Amino acid sequence: MTFALRGERVLLRDWRDEDIPAWAAMNADPEVRRYFPGVLTAEQASGEAERIRAHGAREGFTFWALEIPGVTDFAGFVGLLRTSFEAHFTPCVEIGWRLATPCWGKGYATEAARLALDHGFKTLGLEEIVALTTLTNLPSQAVMQRLGMSRREEDDFDHPRLAVDHPLRRHLLYRLPRADWLAGQKA
């Protein structure tokens, strides 16, 4: 069975093998990876894609491939993932996105994220979905705010997978409870 969530301009779908070259190119772009520790080699990107796909097979949801019909077959990913590290807010499901630079600033991440949130709350029955990012990633923070997610300073944390002195270690946590999402849908 194939998975698909369709929006007005976006399609979230299962990954295909033919997505991997575009995924690798995207993750070799320093601009795409500027809020991450570094760019990925083609082998590292392929490994990450396999982990994302395996999560989907195991959990029934994942960071799905993002297609912009009529524009590009593969624009990156948007979706839901069980966070795999320990922190004060785990276990949890996080929403995330990563898009190729030509697809930035067009509202695709927000539109696709709304589809993923709706699926997470209405179909999967999740009680809360979180998002996390670095202090300096203002574009992602803006998407989180447009989605109705909220941040409390006491939830900010040091990412356990980054070195103590790493400049990207400090992260912000945004939360969205199911009740808030459903109330916002009725408004």
Rank of each mutant, 00 (worst) to 15 (best):
D165L: 05
R6K: 12
V143T: 14
D17E: 15
K106S: 07
F157E: 10
P177H: 14
L11G: 02
R13I: 00
E18A: 14
G70T: 05
L173Q: 00
N27A: 07
G125C: 09
R175W: 07
G70E: 10
G107H: 12
A131N: 12
R161L: 15
R175C: 11
S84Q: 15
K186V: 14
T133A: 08
R146D: 02
H171D: 03
V143R: 09
D180P: 05
L173Y: 01
T123M: 01
Y108A: 10
T72H: 02
Y108I: 06
Y108S: 04
L138E: 14
L115R: 09
L66E: 13
W23A: 09
I68F: 06
L99A: 14
C103N: 14
G120R: 00
E128S: 00
H119P: 00
L99K: 13
Q44F: 07
K106D: 03
E154T: 14
R16T: 10
L80G: 11
Y35K: 00
P102E: 00
T62N: 08
Y35I: 02
L138M: 09
A116N: 06
L80W: 10
T133P: 07
A75C: 12
L173G: 07
G70P: 10
S84N: 14
G70I: 05
C103R: 08
T136A: 14
W104Q: 02
A65R: 02
N137G: 08
